[in-house]
Design a protein around this nucleic acid. Sequence first.
DNA 1: CAGTCAAAGTTCCTTCAGGGAACCCTGATT
DNA 2: AATCAGGGTTCCCTGAAGGAACTTTGACTG
Lengths: 150, 150
Amino acid sequence: MQRTNFGDMACSIARTLDVIGEPWSPLVLRDVYAGFTRFEQIQADLGISRKVLTERLNHLVEQGVLERRPYDRRPRYEYVLTEKGTELVDLLMVMVRWGDTWLAGQAGAPVLYRHHACGEVSRVDLSCAHCGEPMHAGDVDLLPGPGAAS
Amino acid sequence: MQRTNFGDMACSIARTLDVIGEPWSPLVLRDVYAGFTRFEQIQADLGISRKVLTERLNHLVEQGVLERRPYDRRPRYEYVLTEKGTELVDLLMVMVRWGDTWLAGQAGAPVLYRHHACGEVSRVDLSCAHCGEPMHAGDVDLLPGPGAAS
DNA sequence: CAGTCAAAGTTCCTTCAGGGAACCCTGATT
DNA sequence: AATCAGGGTTCCCTGAAGGAACTTTGACTG
């Protein structure tokens, strides 16, 4: 095996990488989210090799992140986010926030997000699902869970 | 060039992938966060090739995510998270949440997070940095930002 | 003070995944 | 019948990942 299989590790990070950790996969997901739902659109937008795009789309469909659906009586297909895939977009939003903060430089953010609830251009923040207070690296203790390795 | 360089794209997701998108990098970051800070510890914990681990650590140090610091008068080094790297842990926490939800199965979460502020075992949630309300894929409009491509 | 030890890499070889260009298949349109 | 466009496949080449063996540095041991 050339690329190690992360899916078998008792680690949700490794397992998630097994789904979207391959090169291009997050960008494919971003494109679908942004409305580039067809093979040709994604290929042209990203400049990705057609071979690799085929592999990535198939993998994302197998993993239940995307759904492949026909949109014509000719053999034409578009890819749409499933619920599982829509929740993965959270991950992209956090990547955007970090990239905007640390890598965008002078030019500023390439894309802005306007939040429907308040109407403002904003960005995501991490909070505790239980108490709502901020929740970052230093705000938690790690404990072994029920699915921990033996 | 074999692997396309994402860092030049006008996209914070692509730029972030340029920093931690290579195979193993998020797991290396996780290990450092979890207290496996030395080469031998990380190598043994992950089972990663020594060659690849060297490459990943060097890259993460170059990108300012990790700092390499001596801990002995012998040539011994440990890797610690910088501020830039600590903020990347947010990304890991979101990966954990998604993986726990969609991939953990019967066994349940391998690791639990206890939040200092409330003392409860919890998980991260995404909220708007401006108004504090939930902020997910369907809750925003995308707009071109100042750093958008010409 | 030669021999041993452990951490932290480096070197070398093999295998397989990514890049890229050319080709193919299907059903509609002219 | 010929053309067209979307959505892939096929092929070859290069370079990254795996893995084992080797090296370097300084400290410790008898």
